[in-house]
């Protein structure tokens, strides 16, 4: 197997004296679709920030392959839509590092940004203001911006939050397409278990300050998820889909 794009070796993550995750061992290989799940406050964001290089580990080593370019798609809710920026303006931000300080993006950067918008199906709204776009369109704009970096690793933080079912399916379909057709390595952070289990080739589950890594079949087990979430769950498999329900509700429904 080739060298991983990113390797976490015995990494301890946290802030100051507060340790959030211990002994993290994780390899992300080229072509992976890695899904990271866990309850609120389990350390997903901490691990993500470390992966992006924003947060330094408390101990251990994180190795990144030479020439690694990470395209990051943040949570939509973190951005202020009142900024008077068009979809193209935002996607162009992905080209800023190429342009360099003191220089404006060139014509070639603008053309590439337009291509990225086209790739996500939004070429026709390039000059529309970000605040005038729907939630799904805004999410696509952020994905296009990440693509403008020309990444070999795409990291998405909760990309389907607040989206209705068809829009969620469309966004996930786009991500899957980027993985399958463009060969992009994906790291998807989500609290929606069935979404991650459906699409990821490998999963990471955060439990009691540790990261468990495996495939969906290994980790989407009732005893594993009960330990992670602290509630009794029921897991059913339907084709490629996992359906996870909290057991009390499932029993209440069956009583009716």
């Amino acid at each position: 197997m080739s060298d991983p794009l990113v390797r976490f070796q015995e990494v301890q993550l946290g802030y100051g004296r507060q340790v959030v995750l211990e002994n993290v061992q994780l390899d992300i290989f080229r072509g992976d679709f890695f899904g990271l799940v866990g309850p609120n406050g389990s350390g997903k964001t901490t691990l993500l920030r470390c992966l992006l290089g924003i947060l330094k580990p408390l101990s251990g080593e994180i190795t990144r392959s030479a020439g690694l370019r990470i395209g990051y798609v943040p949570q939509r809710e973190m951005l202020d839509p009142r900024f008077p920026l068009t979809a193209l303006d935002i996607v162009l931000m992905g080209r800023y590092p190429c342009a360099g300080v003191f220089r404006s993006p060139r014509r070639a950067d603008r053309d590439f940004a337009m291509q990225c918008l086209q790739q996500v199906g939004l070429a026709d709204v390039a000059h529309k203001l970000y605040r005038e776009l729907s939630g799904g369109q805004r999410q696509r704009v952020l994905i296009a911006r990440a693509l403008a970096v020309e990444p070999n690793l795409l990291v998405l933080d909760e990309p389907t939050n607040g989206l209705d079912l068809p829009t969620e399916a469309a966004i996930l379909g786009l991500i899957e397409q980027l993985h399958a057709q463009s060969g992009l390595t994906i790291v998807l952070v989500s609290h929606v278990l069935n979404v991650v289990a459906r699409y990821a080739t490998r999963m990471g589950v955060l439990l009691d300050g540790r990261l468990l890594v495996g495939d969906a079949e290994e980790l989407m087990q009732e005893q594993v998820l009960e330990e992670v979430y602290g509630v009794p769950v029921c897991v059913q498999r339907l084709d490629h889909h996992y359906i996870v329900a909290v057991r009390e509700i499932e029993e209440a429904c069956s009583d009716e």
């Binding site: 992006l52 290089g53 924003i54 990470i70 990051y72 943040p74 973190m78 951005l79 202020d80 900024f83 920026l85 935002i90 931000m93 992905g94 800023y96 590092p97 342009a99 300080v101 003191f102 404006s104 993006p105 911006r145 970096v149 990291v155």
Partner: peptide, 22 residues
């Protein structure tokens, strides 16, 4: 004026700016 695009990026999305190496 020379640094406006970096100021704009940091103002709009500081986390992505950090991920891009700023």
């Amino acid at each position: 004026l020379l640094l406006r695009k970096e100021f704009l990026l940091v103002a709009f999305d500081a986390e992505t700016a950090q991920a891009l190496g700023y």
